[in-house]
Design a protein around this nucleic acid. Sequence first.
DNA 1: CACAGTCTGTAACAAATGTTACAAAAATTT
DNA 2: AAATTTTTGTAACATTTGTTACAGACTGTG
Lengths: 209, 209
Amino acid sequence: MKELANQILNSIGIEAELITEILSIGRLKKTSAGRPVVDSESSGKEIPLVLEGLLKVMRQNPDGKEVFLYYLERGETCAMSITCCMDSRNVEFRLIAEEDSSVWMIPTRYLDSWIAKYPSFRRHVLISYQTRFDELLTTIDSIVFSKMDSRLYKYLLDTKQATGSYIINKTHEQIARDLDTSRVVVSRLLKHMEREEKIEQHRNRIEIL
Amino acid sequence: MKELANQILNSIGIEAELITEILSIGRLKKTSAGRPVVDSESSGKEIPLVLEGLLKVMRQNPDGKEVFLYYLERGETCAMSITCCMDSRNVEFRLIAEEDSSVWMIPTRYLDSWIAKYPSFRRHVLISYQTRFDELLTTIDSIVFSKMDSRLYKYLLDTKQATGSYIINKTHEQIARDLDTSRVVVSRLLKHMEREEKIEQHRNRIEIL
DNA sequence: CACAGTCTGTAACAAATGTTACAAAAATTT
DNA sequence: AAATTTTTGTAACATTTGTTACAGACTGTG
């Protein structure tokens, strides 16, 4: 698995010297689909780099409600975890394995020196922030400027993009939880999309056309 | 005005050496209340540091609709502008002077080397991201998890916080534009808050109790 | 196959928000 | 002071979303 990590770090342009350091310092964590990888409490000491699989980042509010924010794919890191540890602030979120996943956990205490020393790492951290920032803004767009139907459709397309498959294996109930709405609403809107021939529906499975 | 900039940079912990550099390289820009400071197009070459006054950051979608994201107060910089220039990506936003404001514009081409060289600057940039990230998440919270009434109330409280005054000089129409809703909705909800004795209303002016 | 559990479809209704229209009050201009 | 413009209040109605309730379809298990 270190081999894979090596390869991924290399592909995002990290210097050989830093790769060696990251590999000697970090640790591997495997998580099976549907299970949490880290949440805000347990976080703050390590940041995750996705090696295999797919993670999803959920925003959590004090009452226990949740919304889906974005996916983290292979080679990506969680900007919020960096943020979270810097000032030992507690940002409330959950990282959940969407598929069976392998993640390389990197202790945060080295980050600052790496950012100073390695241009590639500096770039990677800033681009992570940039990408996530952008993703959050797009999320805000879809919530503020559109209705639930476009939001749902965006969610389906994002999922297609992240999994690389036109088939989405989720129940209406699961989707409803990600969008913080009710199952009935999701069923209603999906039925409508089916009539418009944007999707096809089967049990536990939606196909994007 | 360089004196003020010096003082502010010092107060956020920037090294004397870097302060000299920033002051020799940047330029002053004054903007009067209600006018745009930069937008995504003109941006990408400079990032703004607020010296005096108050800026507000608006998200803009392609149809020209807008939502208020957060305020930038004295000593703060616009994380999105940093982001925006890094990859010459175009994030759509507008920076508007909420009050008469003075801003120190810093060319972006020096950022990377400063981040590498100066711990204080590294810290400042990362904390900016952190703070804005958090602010965006709170915004998402208020949109997803709450109804328009709490969103409006949060907006009033944010404005009170940023301006340091219990008096908010805005019309219902202006507020409606910031929240991307209609004037009628704002009037309705404000009337309700007035009955609950959370605010007092006058023409062009709302007082938070 | 019978049964239980899960998933989806639909109806009926409630609540929240958006829209249109109009009137009254306050400020500004003539 | 009269006329005009801007701001606020309110009503009536449409649309969107949320909620409850129930039925039918599918899946897996004994």
